[in-house]
């Protein structure tokens, strides 16, 4: 294995592990749910992406076998992370609205409501006066 490839793989592994650690540290350290959602969904996903890239280059240069497994895992993680984060944010909004006492707000305070009559579409109840639903009697 050439020194250049060795350096590149080593750096990618260190960067990836650093991002994974920062993501989990943010999950522990940040003050509210909405802020805690940021750290793992962005930093950790990026870190795992770097680790998988390192693994791909490592397999190619050290063992000479080219595999697309890692690309598949990376693609799947990058596609699913935003969807999972969106679902979790919906759970938080839903719980803020329906559970008595609610949950702690972050530094930025509670999120603004979408408009005067509407509400967040967390499936708790149909939105009032939105297109496609019958008007209230």
């Amino acid at each position: 294995m050439s020194p250049a490839a060795d350096t590149v793989v080593g750096l990618l592994v260190l960067i990836g592990a650093g991002f994974v650690l920062v993501g989990s540290w943010g999950l522990v350290r940040l003050p509210s749910v909405m802020e805690r959602l940021h750290a793992p969904t962005k930093a950790t996903t990026l870190g795992v992406g770097a680790l998988l890239l390192a693994s791909m280059i490592d397999g190619r240069t050290r063992y000479g076998n080219w595999t697309a497994h890692e690309l598949l895992v990376t693609l799947f993680l990058f596609v699913t992370a935003p969807v999972a984060a969106n679902m979790i944010a919906k759970v938080h909004l839903h719980r803020t609205r329906t559970v008595a006492g609610g949950e702690a707000d972050g530094i930025a305070g509670p999120p603004p409501r979408p408009d005067d009559e509407g509400d967040w579409a967390t499936f708790a109840e149909p939105r009032r006066n939105c297109p496609g639903t019958p008007p209230d009697p």
Binding site: S24, L37, P40, T41, A84, I88, H92, R95, E103
Partner: peptide
Amino acid sequence: LADRIVALDT
């Protein structure tokens, strides 16, 4: 609950 789901996902 949202914290726990985030933690499991992570």
